[in-house]
Amino acid sequence: MNAGATGREVVLRVYRGDANGGEEVAYTVPVETGMVVLDAIHWIQAHRAPDLAVRWNCKAAKCGSCSAEVNGKPALMCKSRLDHFPEGQPITVRPMKTFPIVRDLVTDVKWNYEINKRIAPFQPRANAEWRWQQSDIDRVQEFRKCIECFLCQDVCHVLRSHELKHQFAGPRFLVRIAGLEMHPIDGADRVPFLKDTAGIGLCNITKCCTEVCPEGITITDNAIIPLKERVVDRYYDPVQRVWRAITGAKDGT
């Protein structure tokens, strides 16, 4: 027996298939102390199914590659410890359901990168002083923790169940926009983009994105709702519109 072996076994029901269809295949895996689902997948690749497709890289919950659905919940496989699941019950591992499947546990997430290209990048204001206080940058630093695992995109029902990729950019990109919009020296105006292109009005703030984020980013409360409020400032608050018309003041003052 290997060092760390527990003598226990776990059954993983892993989805095998492609766009033409597939099914769950059961594999029995010996459990070692501290083992995570990705370890079990690697054991299956090494001992039972060398053609099992899985995307992974760091195995440290920092690269965002091994996103999947473990027991129906979007999660990083490298962060899903086997001893956190009920003993004696099989664990299902499936690919993310919001994106088209390539093979087995691998999905095509290229759509996300295409959406990302549409967001106006960081644009410092003219003559901006490149100094700021920590209090100015705290909010943005939270958003910079994103590892682009796309679990929030996967669980978002607007993209997942309603297939509105043609109308909604998804929580990952609202987080990115929040990080840019709230930056103390950024001068670009992304509020019209938020409303008309990113489709922030389609988010009904049910917070699934926050629940699954492996980095613990409070996506809904700290990014999406503040952005919704900025859209309200610009488009839905008549008092502020009149005030801006009279004083020439801009948003965010």
């Binding site: 009920p86 994106f99 997942r160 297939e163 990729k165 043609h166 909604f168 008309d196």
Partner: peptide
């Protein structure tokens, strides 16, 4: 009528999630 548009073709990049019926899930909790 004010509906946003990301530039993606409708129905493109669809996954298996949209084909799940009401209440369908692998969640066991």
């Amino acid at each position: 009528r004010g509906v946003p548009a990301t530039g993606t073709a409708p129905g493109a990049w669809s996954g298996a999630g949209s084909r799940q019926g009401f209440g369908a899930t692998e969640r066991g909790d």
